[in-house]
Amino acid sequence: MELDDSIQTIREYIKNKHSKDNSGHDYWHIERVVTNTQKILNYEKADRTKALLSAWLHDIGDYKLHNGTDRTKELIYPLLSSLEYPKSFIEDIIKIIKEVSYMGGYNTPPTSPEAKIVQDADRLDAIGAVGIARAFAYGGNKGRVLFDPNEMPTEYTEGTSYQKNTSCTINHFYEKLLKLKDLMNTDIAKKMAQERHSFMQKFLEEFYKETGYDN
């Protein structure tokens, strides 16, 4: 199957799986990550097919969407097999996706150009104006408190405890989002991240000002 044909099939599959998501991992998040991937690919050398397919599929088995269980391999194998991709190619896609995850900053570092690119593309969508909107969407989806001034952000020392995190949404900025700027892999993503990072800082300043906790 040609790449354009397989991507169209995968796009429809993703729409079906993610169309009703209200946690910030909906179809439009996936599409933005694909767009970010395409932008980065204009500056970085990588296998375009693997990068784009991984971007489309990066959240399909995410533990956050499956009650804490990673279903990446379970869902991707039959899908890509049905599109006649070879086993070795599918294994590469699964590896890329597993290396994209944040896991409190304790995930396996990306080992391929494709994983670095898709990780950057995904993290760019977690910061800036869209990142702020997604953070509160996810917090609301999980029933988290918006802000609790008595609850301090946690510095995680390993990925498992980060996965079990239930702190208020504002803490998420300090536990993850504000760290992402310095964790980008590619030069172009670092430049894109800087502006989005600054926007989040301004948002937090205004938030504390309006809530009276700016001192």
Results as ranks from 00 to 15, higher is better:
Thr111Leu: 15
Ile127Pro: 00
Ala115Gly: 06
His18Asn: 09
Tyr156Asp: 09
Ala55Thr: 01
Tyr138Ala: 14
Gly131Thr: 00
Leu75Lys: 08
Leu52Phe: 03
His18Ala: 12
Ala51Glu: 08
Met1Gln: 11
Ile93Thr: 01
Gln163His: 10
Glu31Arg: 10
Thr154Trp: 01
Thr9Trp: 07
Lys181His: 12
Asp122Glu: 04
Ala126Val: 00
Asn185Glu: 05
Phe199Gly: 10
Thr160Leu: 10
Lys95Gln: 12
Ser81Leu: 09
Asp125Met: 02
Ala51Cys: 08
Glu210Pro: 11
Phe199Asn: 11
Val33Glu: 12
Arg11Ala: 09
Glu84Ile: 04
Arg123Gln: 14
Thr37Lys: 00
Ile127Met: 06
Asp92Thr: 15
Leu183Lys: 10
Tyr138Met: 11
Asn42Cys: 11
Glu155His: 04
Ala137Met: 14
Ala189Trp: 01
Phe207Leu: 08
Gly143Ile: 13
Asp92Ala: 14
Asn165Arg: 05
Lys39Gln: 08
Glu175Thr: 08
Ile132Met: 07
Tyr156His: 05
Ile93Tyr: 00
Glu12Arg: 13
Ile96Lys: 06
Cys168Val: 05
Thr154Gln: 06
Gly24Thr: 13
Asn150Met: 07
Ala193Tyr: 00
Lys209Arg: 15
Lys164Phe: 14
Ile94Glu: 06
Gly105Asp: 14
Ile40Met: 01
Gly143Pro: 11
Phe199Trp: 13
Ala121Lys: 02
Ala189Lys: 05
Tyr208Ile: 06
Cys168Lys: 10
Ala46Arg: 07
Thr35His: 10
Leu65Gly: 05
Thr35Cys: 05
Leu52Gly: 01
Tyr27Leu: 09
Asp214Cys: 09
Ile127Tyr: 02
Arg11Thr: 12
Leu178Gln: 03
Ile10Asp: 02
Ala46Asp: 11
Asp214Val: 05
Asp120Val: 04
Met200Phe: 10
Asn215Leu: 11
Ser167Tyr: 07
Ile97Met: 02
Ser161Val: 07
Asp26Ile: 08
Leu80Trp: 01
Asp4Val: 11
